[in-house]
Amino acid sequence: MRTRRIAQIAGVLALNPYFQYFSTRVIYQGGAKYVCAPGFNCYSCPLAAFSCPIGSMQHGFTLLSLKVREFKLAMGALLYVFASVGILGVIAGRIPCGWICPFGFLQELLYKIPLPKLQLPRRINLGRYFFLIVLVALIPFITAQSWFSRLCPAGALEGGIFLKAVPPQTPLPETGWFFWLKMAILGAFLVWMMVSKRPFCRAVCPLGAMWGLCNRVSLYRMAVDDAKCTACGKCREVCPVDIEIYKDPNSPDCIRCLACKKECRYGAISSGFKQPAEELRLGRRTGAALDG
């Protein structure tokens, strides 16, 4: 757990290292912005060094739209972002969600606040596919505007509030009702994060949706040994996304934080880039096998 916390803090700093902004008041424009960030991190944050994969993807869809019709640029952007996200996903699955993502880290910290907790239904995990298809792809394609970015709570926090507090040299647009709408969305999410485990990651995050699908095929594997697992439920208690790993070790919902592996007193959970022996022996573990 401590190692993961250090990795998460390092992730925040690695994705947002441009502290020169405080003296120059100019947003970073160096070569690292060619690279998509390995996590959900707004690139309108003045400290951000990398591009937001979701913002970039939406930009690709807006270029593709009938209003803009920049087909060549759109293809370039979309292929580049899909492939960049895909490579990391095929290697590691959702490891960046559990170990690097600054917005995921924020959610885990807020959940520590002692308040009554609210368990979310499993169906809510389908929400992130809806946001990926509708708000990231379809609506930007139709309207030629990046609507997910415009409403994104991470953007409101890292970009909106930060830029208002420490404005850049270039004047910002007037604060209108839309800014306050973004603040209301951010506020609602912050409250939700205090009472539910990583709600944004589970219900909304389009990046998590894509990396989650990669969990099924990634080089990094999780496995549960049927012979050792007693289904005691300890793994679910410590899981930041509230899943039962023994039912589906490579579930798209798992962020591979490995808290369950550490918690399991029977040593039933294994993981690694080498295909774990349990997985080779048993195939994918299913709930049916466990219940039977």
Partner: peptide
């Protein structure tokens, strides 16, 4: 795909948008 995207100026498109936003 990344190699093909470079032909279509993919990385630069992402980068340009990052500055504008």
């Amino acid at each position: 795909l990344i190699a093909i995207s470079a032909i279509f100026d993919g990385p630069r498109t992402v980068y340009t948008h990052a500055i504008i936003i």
